[in-house]
């Protein structure tokens, strides 16, 4: 396995590969954003933070002290607990913030998600400062160890866990597309987003559909947090928002905010833009500027995104 498709070490290979794996995190965040945009017609600014919540919980569950109690859960249990808690925070957001503001203008709902984001970061900070730092190894450190494979990727500075991220993204994106195309629940979500009153008339519970979408979005955000953060030595509160929110939003808009495959493609493109700018420009903040310009250009020239049809 030492030979990969990008056999030679061309200057293009490295940013290309790194861009795709980085883009898969953006793609995962974008998937959740698109899901919520489909159902509520809003952008959820707390989307990436569900991931931080999940990762932090998994950290403390795996090998950390919380409130003086040491926890030593197995890796898989810790990660599951993390994802459950991250998803639960999305469910709570829906019940406590989105539901009471349902009839309000969309901007108010967005400000509500900003409030959730602020509250989440503050709580994380309080909890983290009350306990000791911990470390959560990535999935490859615990199970999948193949020195030959690692060596093959090392040439491109791409680790196994980044490949796992990409696989997770592909699987979840395909699952999401299938969910909306073939399942009754997926169709119900689309129906409520397009015409809530008519959907309610034919017997769809808008309340349950809203809860379902937020649960799914919370799950996607949590998975994104786990795959992006497991194995990273530092974990500070708000890290997913700081590193992946803008990229995820840009990816969602680039893909046309209502399209699941679009979110996937958008994530990849943003990741590539990020990595190519990083390797060819050296002035500070070049990556942020590049992503910002992409977002601006897409909104001005291509407001429907690349794949902007409702599917």
């Amino acid at each position: 396995m030492t030979e990969l498709a990008f056999g030679s070490s061309t200057p293009l290979g490295q940013p290309l590969l790194l861009g795709i794996v980085e883009g898969s995190v953006y793609g995962l965040i974008a998937l959740g954003l698109v899901l919520l945009y489909k159902s509520n017609r809003i952008f959820n600014f707390a989307q990436a933070e569900f991931g931080t919540i999940a990762a932090l919980t998994a950290y403390f569950g795996y090998n950390g002290k919380l409130f003086g109690i040491p926890w030593h859960m197995p890796w898989l249990v810790a990660v599951t607990v993390g994802i459950v808690l991250g998803t639960l925070s999305a469910v709570l957001t829906e019940r406590l913030v989105i539901r009471p503001l349902f009839q309000q203008p969309k901007v108010i709902l967005v400000v509500g998600t900003v409030g959730v984001l602020l509250a989440a970061i503050a709580v994380e900070n309080l909890v983290v400062s009350a306990t000791e730092p911990a470390y959560l190894p990535s999935v490859t450190e615990t199970g999948l160890k193949d020195p030959a494979f690692r060596a093959g990727f090392a040439q491109y500075n791409v680790s196994w866990e980044q490949v796992v991220t990409l696989i997770v993204l592909v699987v979840l994106a395909l699952a999401a597309v299938a969910f909306f195309r073939y399942s009754r629940q997926g169709t119900a979500i689309l129906a409520v987003s397009q015409e809530p009153t008519a959907a309610a008339t034919v017997g769809i519970s808008t309340s349950r559909v809203s809860l379902l979408t937020w649960t799914l979005a919370g799950f996607l955000g949590s998975v994104a947090g786990i795959v992006a953060l497991a194995g990273s030595p530092v974990l500070v509160p708000g890290i997913m928002t700081g590193t992946a929110l803008v990229g995820g939003i840009t990816a969602a808009v680039l893909g046309g905010v209502t399209s699941m495959p679009g979110a996937f493609v958008g994530g990849m493109l943003v990741g590539l833009v990020h990595q190519f700018t990083a390797s060819y420009f050296s002035f500070p903040g070049a990556q942020n500027v590049a992503v910002g310009l992409v977002l601006l250009l897409v909104l001005l020239a291509l407001p429907k995104g690349l794949l902007g049809s409702e599917t």
Binding site: F43, I249, V253, N288, L295, L299
Partner: peptide, 23 residues
């Protein structure tokens, strides 16, 4: 003038992070 509503809030978000990290 061209981009309003929620999309404008995205633009301002990106504007803030881009200008502070570069310029």
């Amino acid at each position: 003038l061209r981009i309003t509503g929620l999309y404008l809030s995205l633009i301002t978000l990106v504007f803030g992070s881009a200008i502070t990290s570069s310029l």
